[in-house]
Amino acid sequence: MIRFAWPSELRKRGVLGINQRNADFIMRFNKRKFFPLVDDKLITKELALKKGIAVPELYGVLQTEHEISEIENLLNQHKDLVIKPAQGSGGNGILVIDGKIGKRFRKASGDLITLDTIKHHCSNILNGMYSLGGMEDKAILEYRVQFDPFFQHISYQGVPDIRVIVFRGIPVAAMIRLPTRESDGKANLHQGAIGLGIDLKTGFTTFGVHHNAAVQQHPDTGAETNHIQIPHWETILRTAVECADTVGLGYLGVDLVMDKNLGPLMLELNARPGLNVQLANRRGLLKNLMKWAEMKEIPADPAERIRMAQEALD
């Protein structure tokens, strides 16, 4: 059993550490003035819509305490919706409602909550409970993604979430995160979700980790997790690259979900994407990052860049 890795060994595998990610990639390639474009999900959504990138439909925005009372109308119009903070981080503060039973609303987990609880949740969002630094925030109400039955066997509650890391407009790695019973339907690896690496060239899953340990099967459904073809893979890559071009950030994490009817939808962008994608792929990011960092001119054509990314993998 390996207890730890020597730095030189990690270096040899091209593993990117947090310090280096911050100093050499985020600080160098992500201009601070572009951060608000991704930190505020409302702005991201507007930009994406302008560019014709598919995103979940916006139902409404709550900006003041007063507007919270209007939420009842919205809830009556849309039985299925997601309430989330515009500037939340790490998936915090997201409330998913998928139905109404009597006077109470049903959360994705199946729990029933009252209208007051929802209003209180919105108030917490507005007061900045989930935003970075406790700044006042807005609550976004949007379309709840319809679970694609393709993932039925490899997902427990929640919706799997596909993350593509794009560097200077070139995809460098991707993974899909599958919620488990342990992760409470959330696609967060820390909380026990499964991460599967995806081959950028083919869109097949390659390798899986659950709590840092290799997995072949989903712990709740028992379904095979290796060698699954992610549907619409070309669209996903293209969307990720377009997102990067839209916000102008050099080092970007693009999160997408698969909708049953609408196909891949861009959910949010992340200017400081985590490093777990390396574990899920069991492949370090550094080699390709360095390669693109040194490149003088990056081709303008997205298709060309995707081709470069796929060729660089070998």
Binding site: R13, A23, N212, A213, Q278
Partner: peptide, 23 residues
């Protein structure tokens, strides 16, 4: 502020990155 080396916790966090050769 310009330290770009690994953090100590990353040495265990990424220890499995070394595995693919052996498995």
């Amino acid at each position: 502020g310009r330290y770009t080396g690994y953090r100590l916790v990353e040495l265990t966090r990424f220890k499995d990155m070394l595995r693919n050769e052996k498995s």
